[in-house]
């Protein structure tokens, strides 16, 4: 199996190279430039040209790309045009925020989704199943940002249970209070993200359980005289959870997509909010770095899914 994983990692290298070229070119293809909006309005066109020249923005694309890659290998992603700070430092701070929020969301998602899906599948057609299905359809139909805005309005504004912006309260003093405040700020975006994220898992798991219930191997187990609760424990749950386990790797992708919405709506200083802001400022260095990072995380997520699947499902052993 190690061979397979090593080969998959080797295949990832050309994937990442192609990804980086595309990302770089797409960022360059955006109209506008990083300076027009940010310098003294009295400065002339010549000055902007000068800045463009100095920063190498008039070089041919492959030249610019090559410089970028060489710097990349020195751990230097360039400076943000917007913040005049190294890109690595800007992303670094926010990546930690996004990481904690994503981790919290994913844990919460599975904590909610697994019991729901299993319960709905086992008691298919009964009232709780109908309620759960209704919930999943409704949540599925509402756009994510609408859920977020509604959530903020109801729980943040009307009821006032949760903070509606930021990742930590500026008045929090001491390590303990800071951690507490950070967690408090994560709660509402985390819960709303999890409620949205559960939908796919619940529906998938439910139909897996329903299928497994009427499968031939479950009939065989019943013919062996295995009590129904044991059949659920030893046969149905394990077999149904398998595709869900494999799904975990891909959920990284979903979380990053979700982060863009969640962080924008909650003004939560993470990578998603940084990404949206950087696009409006044409902050090329930050955009390319972030898209590349998201892309690499996606590729790793897929790899993770394949590895998980090959561990839990004996039928998948790629030689």
């Amino acid at each position: 199996m190690w061979k397979t994983i090593l080969r998959r990692i080797l295949i990832m290298i050309p994937e990442i190279i192609i990804l980086s070229i595309i990302v770089f070119l797409l960022a360059k293809a955006m109209p506008g430039d990083p300076f027009t909006g940010s310098i003294n309005p009295r400065a002339g066109v010549a000055q902007i040209h000068h800045l463009m020249e100095v920063n190498g923005l008039y070089d041919p694309w492959y030249q610019q790309y090559w410089n970028w890659v060489v710097h990349l290998f020195h751990g230097n992603l360039g400076e943000s045009y917007q913040y005049n700070e190294p890109v690595t430092r800007i992303i670094g701070q926010r990546a930690v925020n996004t990481l904690w929020l994503s981790l919290f969301t994913v844990v919460l998602t599975y904590l909610i989704a697994l019991p729901m899906g299993i319960y709905a599948g086992r008691h298919e057609g009964k009232l709780p199943d109908t309620v759960i299905r209704f919930y999943t359809y409704v949540t599925y139909c509402i756009p994510f940002f609408v859920i977020l805005v509604l959530g903020i309005w109801i729980f943040g504004y009307v009821l006032g249970w949760f903070p509606t912006t930021g990742s930590v309260s500026p008045t929090a003093n001491g390590t303990f209070a800071t951690i507490g405040s950070r967690f408090y700020h994560m709660l509402l975006p985390g819960i709303l993200g999890a409620l949205f994220g559960t939908v796919n898992i619940v529906q998938y798991l439910r139909s897996e359980v329903v299928d497994a219930k009427s499968s031939d191997y479950v009939r065989t187990a019943r013919a062996k005289g295995v009590p129904i609760n044991d059949i659920y424990r030893h046969h149905i749950f394990r077999n149904s959870l398998l595709p869900i386990a494999a799904f975990a790797g891909y959920s990284i992708t979903g979380l990053l997509n979700g982060a863009i919405f969640t962080e924008s709506v909650f003004s939560y200083p993470g990578m998603g909010l940084l990404f949206v802001n950087s696009i409006s400022y044409r902050d090329y260095t930050v955009i390319t770095a972030l898209v590349l990072l998201f892309g690499i995380l996606n590729i790793f997520g897929t790899l993770l899914s394949d590895i998980i699947l090959s561990i839990v499902d004996p039928r998948i052993r790629i030689e």
Partner: peptide
Amino acid sequence: FQDPLSSLNPL
């Protein structure tokens, strides 16, 4: 049972 493949738990 009739179908020996599906009658056994694949895992």
